[in-house]
Design a protein around this nucleic acid. Sequence first.
DNA 1: ATGGTTTTTACTGCGTC
DNA 2: GACGCGGTAAAAACCAT
Length: 321
Amino acid sequence: MKNKAVKETVKAAALRIAAKCPECSSTNLVHDYDSGETVCGGCGLVVERDQPSSEPEWRAYTLEEKLSRDRAGLPITFTVHDKGLSTEVGRKYEDRDSRNRKFPISTKEQVHRIRDAQNRFRVHSALERNITQALSELARLLDKLSIESEVVKEETARKYRKAVYDGFTRGRGIRGVIPAILYDTLRQYDIPRNLEEIAEVGNYNRKTIARNYRLWVRKYMDSARPPFDSELYLGKIFNKLMLNGVTQKYSLKILEAARKEMLTSGRSSEGVAAAVVYVASVLSGERKTQYELAEVMKVTEVTIRNRYKEIVENLLFTTEL
DNA sequence: ATGGTTTTTACTGCGTC
DNA sequence: GACGCGGTAAAAACCAT
């Protein structure tokens, strides 16, 4: 125990010493205790801040974020454009010049204006950089989901931009917000991809994006979006498993009948769709395993069994196929 | 927070290829 | 022996209140 802790400390120290500037690879890193920043002696890049700055976080600094990025194979951009280099007109210079002489009033006002303008610019450009970063994450995600639609992309970008300027994204991180907002857009346009799938392909934390999606809905919508219709999922399954026309026809009929018998309400449309196709595939002879259906719909085999049991018990005999 | 419902997790047993 | 399937109990997630 104790040994391990010591080892960790040594390791951390070694890492620190060996640290290189991501920009110019200089090992000459200087820690400034006044500003709490570690600055590269080679190029002046601020490598690290002791305390989280008040600027919105647009890069992953936590270990978890970094790890999940690595796993996703995302090309990591270490280049922190301009970070920490922009000039700031501090308050302490408000009415004094560098030799501590008092400014005339007019100069004071001028300094005021300059500082305000500069702060505005700085905040603005920080937000814009965040958005740029977010858009590349969005592009990556859309690519992984095989979604080509420009409309979806634009709509999601629009929402994200709004969210940024509303402060909605603060503290949630791009990887927490982008998938959540994209999911909302997909619901909007009836493109069936559930949170599980999005989380999986993008290596996101499902719970996090689920929470952020809820918050998004609460803040920006006055009523909940209807869930994906089971029928949309049927189409998706047909495509993914390349099912023949007979199975497809059976599936549609079974779903319709199940709806009439009220076997679908209160149940997840994913589970319903998976079970319906499972039964249809058995009936048509183009048998698919429960596992395959579960995999496509991101539900468990248990759920499929529960749904399909109900279907068989309640309506198989009453339905003409 | 709470309680009711659905889904997941984890495990077991059975028949078939 | 691996695979597909069925069942179950308990945990977890979900949802409305």
